[in-house]
Design a protein around this nucleic acid. Structure first.
Length: 880
RNA sequence: GGGCGGUUAGCUCAGUUGGUAGAGCACCGGCUUUACACGCCGGCUGUCACAGGUUCGAGUCCUGUACCGCCCACCA
């Protein structure tokens, strides 16, 4: 059976002192020059293995966790390449979004003001000034692009050093033109189909970033708070009160109702009555709703617009008034109370309400809370003192203050009506490890609203939409103006809708651009379409999509993975990929997630320099799919030693034996060349390793492949090579030497290729000593080919022969160790007691055993297995 | 409150159809052995979290409990 990867050179060149130093630079340059990882787009879909690479956020630095998970993907990519598939392995940069905005603002000392026109001559100051300079959105975006370009270069250098086999011609940026065009086109298609819609509704709002955020970007944080027992007086029976508990007394001015459970006997008689809010004297109804929990507080809750998501539900389902008090920046807005005052704020005691409220206007929620507690205490409406409590509060994951809920106009993607389809797609997807599907399903089933994709920010993909302005100056949101796809990407803050002139911007009868940008996930959820050339290169798209794998970490299943599945479902009616390979996190030795500060102490580049890229990759690849793994420099040292061992073992295997016939280290190994029982057993064992490794790689269990290969390799070095050393040097003739050489070379070739996905540098180095071409384009080892080397007779019984040899050799070693004798001490007499069936294998291994064990006399007796060893003396004159 | 993982040697972890408990690191002892002292050989180390159950036999399967971690939740 031909093995095209096994084409040894005639001029084998093994260095005297092989070393790892410098291999990364040497081979990274060679791979680039030779285009080893270049994607060949002439292959059809079946011949391609396509990867939906996660784009790391560039406005930060790469940390150990990135090295960890990207290595996992790279091992699979390299395996697939060696299996003969053309690997589509792009690299993206997530330079879109809030983190970049923040960095650019600080770095250049600027602030985005979308109302300004583009200034082509603008250059940022050398040093950021005290007062941020206001710049237009296009100028701001230019600065973002400029800064991220620098970051991206640093990232690329690290990835090359780590040995990621990406095709560096296939890069993308989430703010790049291609990404903008795809995002906008996909949005317009959603709009046309009705999958995207605009709505003015209560929305989760971050008061610092002053933008809407999505459910997926929430996180709960434990914060100290306090229950305040507040009394509401009956509107009809003076002196009768209802008591409630609240953690947000400052929202009393926004109170629109009280609510109790319909089955709660204590309050049933009050349902349908009205009460007056304390301090403000607003008449609000007492309502019944099943979400009111009799166990919580007093059993009656205050409904405000809006304190939390339950308030939104109550407000909507009970059809209550809206009484909004918080501005987008988180402060209490100015309000006129009393009959004829600001809508919704009618009250019986206007003067008192106004006096109270004026003390809150302009304050943040936190400050207003402290103030209103004083007022309530003075009025007697606060019963007892606040009772401190720790409770979970919702935050934007990147935010510093609790979220508020504000009514605003936002763009949404319909997801609630697609949950069943999304769950079904989750079942079609192959998850590695499988239990990660539960997180996805959990999330989909827990969705409580459509996906809000608009953000009131600047550095993102703009909504390609304008609105007509009525003659009265109001904006006609119901009839958005959209561009033809051929115009994309557009920036509605500078571009003009078809049929309008620039001077019509913002004037009655003219148009207004949509001021918002898309959520970063609304763009990155299209990563397969962006990299695959969905719009511009349908030929490429057909060759790579749906993709083979999405590698990513488990913390963004609810965001990136979910949204990508959704978008692919909407746009193509299919899954975006067949497999999801989920990586775990890197943890501190004390089991905490690697923190930023630690990540800065342990820089990835520093690790690569200290332990070598192969050493670091070894550690990374030992982390099983989906499993959080402790940071362990010890494992990197082990990996480095493994790489060094490979150099030395290869040097030995390729050394020219001292034979008259001039058999060199690199003869081609042909069918039937492996004849000695020990050699045949080794090859059979290796064939089994290859089968297992292939099976595991197909299941994305790269860690097991490494484990299997490594385990075999150490056996190969410590036992097999020691056993056959003498024979392969030709001490017992050319025939026996040829068998050992054939087995050694076949093993070396196979081991190098098994290790190649994990240790790309050292394996390429060794490969280059005696083979042509890159090992990373060589064929993955084949068990059938290996077995053909042992001829057609089969290898039954050979395994037992090898086992016996190893056991006896072990006993001799133990004896020498026990007696603290040098290993070169001869064994004067060795007696093997063993069953006849076992002893029958002895003739086949006797030569190797005697040579390796320095045995002078070897006897055998039938019986239960035992080995007796008598040591001799080291002969005088033995060279030391 | 719901869900998902985990609990095996001092440490980090394997243990895939149930069949006498494993590796590496660390530790101890020994050895310059014509690939490697960035090496080699040998040794020490376990109520497999706990309690039941199924089975001839359970680290492995079932039930429950405890603890750790993560995800989710309408936390007034």
């Amino acid at each position: 059976m031909p093995d095209p990867s096994f084409s040894p050179r005639r001029d084998v060149a093994v260095p005297d002192k092989p070393a790892l130093e410098g291999l990364e630079q040497k081979w990274a340059a060679a791979w680039e020059a030779d285009g080893v990882y270049r994607f060949d787009r002439t292959r059809d879909r079946a011949g391609v293995y396509s990867i939906d690479t996660p784009p790391p956020t560039v406005s930060g630095s790469l940390h150990v966790g990135h090295v960890f998970s990207y290595t996992h993907t790279d091992t699979v990519a390299r395996y697939q390449r060696m299996r003969g598939r053309e690997v589509f392995y792009p690299m993206g940069w997530d330079d879109n979004g809030l983190p970049t905005e923040r960095r650019v603002q600080n770095y250049y000392g600027v602030r985005c003001d979308p109302s300004l026109p583009y200034d082509a001559t603008f250059t940022p100051p050398d040093k950021p000034g005290k007062q941020p300079i206001a710049v237009s959105r296009p100028n701001f975006i230019e600065l973002c692009a400029r800064l991220t370009l620098e970051d991206e270069k640093v990232f690329e250098d690290l990835w090359r050093r780590l040995g990621l086999s990406v095709d560096w011609h296939l890069t993308y940026a989430t703010i790049g033109t291609a990404a903008q065009k795809v995002s906008q086109a996909a949005f317009l298609r959603m709009l046309a189909r009705g999958d995207a819609y605009q709505n003015e509704a209560p929305t989760l709002w971050d008061v610092d970033f002053r933008t809407a955020v999505a459910q997926a970007e929430l996180e709960d944080r434990e914060r100290p708070g306090a229950y305040h027992r507040i009394r509401f007086e009956s509107a009809t029976a003076a002196g009768a009160f209802i008591e409630i508990d609240t953690t947000r007394p400052e929202l009393i001015p926004a109170c629109v109702a009280l609510v109790a459970h319909p089955d709660d006997e204590r309050y049933r008689h009050l349902i349908g009555t009205e009460v007056l809010t304390p301090l403000f004297g607003v008449r609000v109804p007492v309502k019944a709703h099943t979400l009111a929990d009799p166990e919580k507080g007093t059993g009656v809750a205050m409904i405000c617009t809006f304190g939390d998501l339950t308030d939104v539900t109550w407000w909507r389902e009970l059809q209550l008034d809206a009484r909004a008090i918080i501005l987008p920046n988180g402060t209490f807005r100015a309000i006129t109370w009393g009959p004829g005052g600001t809508e919704g704020f009618d009250t019986a005691s206007a003067g008192r309400a106004q006096a109270a409220y004026d003390q809150l206007a302009g304050l943040s929620s936190e400050k207003a809370r402290a103030r209103i507690v004083d007022l309530l205490r003075e009025s007697g409406d606060l019963l007892g003192e606040p009772r401190p409590v720790m409770h979970a509060v919702k935050f934007f994951e990147k935010g510093d203050r609790p979220l508020e809920i504000l009514t605003s106009r936002q763009w949404f993607v319909r997801t609630m009506d697609k949950r069943d389809a999304l769950v079904a797609l989750g079942h079609q997807l192959q998850w590695h490890p499988p239990y990660m599907r539960a997180r996805y399903e959990n999330w989909v089933n827990g969705l409580n609203g459509d996906w809000c994709i608009s953000r009131q920010r600047f550095f993102g993909v703009a909504f390609p939409v304008w609105y007509p302005i009525h003659q009265d100056g109001s904006i006609d949101y119901a009839h958005p103006l959209v561009p033809d796809e051929s115009r994309l990407p557009v920036d509605p803050s500078t571009d003009v809708p078809d049929g309008y002139r620039p001077e019509q911007r913002g004037v009655p009868g003219g148009f207004a651009g949509d001021p918002d940008v898309m959520d970063t996930w609304a763009t990155s959820s299209l990563s397969p379409q962006i990299t695959g050339g969905w719009l511009d290169d349908p030929d490429l798209f057909a060759r790579v999509f749906p993709m083979d794998v999405r590698p990513q970490a488990h913390d963004i299943i609810r965001t990136w993975l979910f949204s990508t599945v959704l978008r692919s479902h909407l746009e193509h009616g299919t899954l975006p990929w067949a497999n999801a390979a989920i990586s775990g996190w890197v943890l501190d030795p004390d089991r905490k997630k690697m923190s930023k500060s630690k990540g800065n102490v342990v820089t990835p580049m520093g690790l690569l320099e200290e332990h070598g890229s192969d050493g670091v990759r070894y550690w990374a690849a030992s982390g099983r799919p989906g499993v959080d793994t402790a940071f362990d420099a010890g494992q990197m040292k082990v990996g480095r030693r493994l790489a060094i061992k490979l150099l030395n073992a290869a040097k030995f295997a390729l050394a020219r034996p001292r034979t008259e016939g001039g058999v060199t280290g690199a003869v081609a190994v042909t069918a039937g060349a492996v004849t000695a029982p020990i050699d045949r057993a080794l090859i059979e064992r290796l064939a089994e390793v290859v089968e297992g490794a292939t099976r595991d790689f197909e299941a994305y269990d790269y860690a097991r492949v490494l484990e299997r290969t490594e385990s075999f390799f150490w056996f190969f070095c410590d036992n097999y090579l020691e056993l056959v050393k003498s024979r392969r040097y030709g001490d017992h003739g050319e025939g026996p030497a040829a068998s050992a050489n054939a087995a050694m070379l076949a093993s070396l070739s196979t081991l190098l290729r098994l290790f190649a996905p994990f240790l790309p540098f050292v394996t390429e180095e060794v490969w280059s000593w005696w083979q042509t071409g890159s090992i990373h384009r060589a064929a993955w080892p084949d068990a059938a080919h290996l077995r053909s080397l042992t001829g057609t007779a089969g290898t039954a019984g050979d395994a037992a022969a090898l086992d016996l040899a190893v056991q006896v050799l072990g006993e001799i070693r133990r004896k020498k160790s026990e007696e603290k004798k040098p290993l070169k001490t001869p064994a004067a007499r060795v007696l093997i007691v063993a069953p006849a069936a076992s002893l029958a294998h002895l003739p086949g291994i006797e030569i190797d055993l005697k040579a390796a064990g320095l045995i002078d006399r070897l006897d055998t007796v039938e019986g239960d297995f035992r080995v007796d060893v008598e040591l001799g003396e080291i002969a005088q004159g033995t060279p030391s």
